[in-house]
Design a binder for these strands. Structure first.
Lengths: 205, 205
DNA sequence: CAACATATCTAATATGCATTAGATATTTAT
DNA sequence: ATAAATATCTAATGCATATTAGATATGTTG
């Protein structure tokens, strides 16, 4: 019989989210069972439920993780990186930051990509969350005083840029699912150069 | 008791693939049961199995469907469309054709996008199929005498263009999952113009 | 060291599901 | 109209799973 090891709720929760992220980012929410998570953590199925309440509760844990961790503009304007001046932050610089951020968290990025697709099912626990996402992201971004090239205005002109940039990231991330060894940052830069070309954007990148 | 209606195998198979495509393109393979398909078709679970043999057999049916239908370069060079001259086909014109083709089959396109993501799970029935896909697509394309701008060569220069184009399509298709009403063709054109810009590509689009 | 709180387990329950076996109805050909 | 072929069904099987109930062990605090 396995020796019963008891750990603090914090470490256990961390172990569980870690294991769940690993499994779900590969198999999707529908592709795993609580038993799979339990086995990977090294405890029993009800042991997991003690922490997450239900299978859906497991997802909630992950989402808050994703949400907290995802490189936000708030985070960016505090980095002091080029283009991160809080009074005139620059969108291309932020996107570079975002991509580097996600490239450094491949597991969470995988998870996000997998869940985003799985969640188009109307009965998926995260359906509403992901449906709202593009709009809420736009609103979120809109709160920042981005510096734009002369003649371009946020509300009028930047919806396309933002939407296309996020589409590109999604596309690259799909490719990343199959070939994790490809260089996300480098691939993104190719598109960044197309989307924000010289000389228009030279001062705003 | 339901009146037993008997139809020809052809129509039944068509009904089944149609129902399965509808359901799987929304819920994924792991998200549906044979019962769901059976209910939608209006027959019993074993009735479905009579035709598909097993749940995996259902997928095989769909894949051949996807495969046959997907707008290939072969198809394109027979259309007589601008840029489709079989001795000098043009890549941007083909991509436009491909996107229009897929835009006209939204259900199969959804299906493809959903399955592609779900199939990163190593134990997914379509795992190998989708892992091989990028390479086999490249080889497939390589068999055609594409007309390229001066100075560009297929093997040396076009891998990036092809890969990036397909990444963009994947990205747009993810967005399409959530907002089916957006215009795939129009969104693709924005990227096409960036990827194949004037004046370099003027004669080869 | 005693007692409490709780993390973890084993066992049980109920449900959903893919698949199989065998019966029945419907079509088609003679 | 009868018979063969087969499409379709009902019923049964067995497995995986989420969840619950109740027992037990472990850490912590006084």
């Amino acid at each position: 019989m396995a020796s019963r090891t008891r750990k603090t709720p914090e470490t256990r929760r961390a172990e569980i989210t870690r294991a769940a992220a690993h499994l779900i980012s590969r198999h999707g929410y529908n592709g795993i069972s609580l038993k799979d998570v339990a086995d990977l953590v090294g405890m029993s199925q009800p042991g997991i439920l003690h922490y997450v309440g239900s299978k859906e509760g497991l997802l909630s844990l992950l989402v808050t993780d994703i949400y907290d961790v995802n490189g936000t503009p708030e985070e960016f304007v505090q980095t002091g990186l080029p283009g991160s001046d809080p009074t005139h932050p620059r969108l291309p610089a932020y996107f570079d930051y975002l991509v580097e951020h996600n490239a450094g968290r491949p597991e969470l990025t995988r998870l996000y990509t997998v869940l985003q697709t799985e969640a188009i099912a109307p009965n998926h626990p995260l359906h509403d969350y992901f449906i709202r996402r593009p709009d809420s992201v736009w609103e979120h971004y809109s709160a920042f005083p981005w510096k734009l090239p002369d003649g371009l205005e946020w509300e009028r002109d930047m919806r396309d840029y933002v939407r296309m940039s996020l589409e590109v990231m999604d596309g690259i991330q799909i490719r990343l699912l199959r070939k994790p060894e490809i260089d996300y940052v480098q691939e993104w830069r190719r598109f960044g150069n197309l989307l924000f070309p010289s000389p228009t954007w030279d001062d705003c990148r």
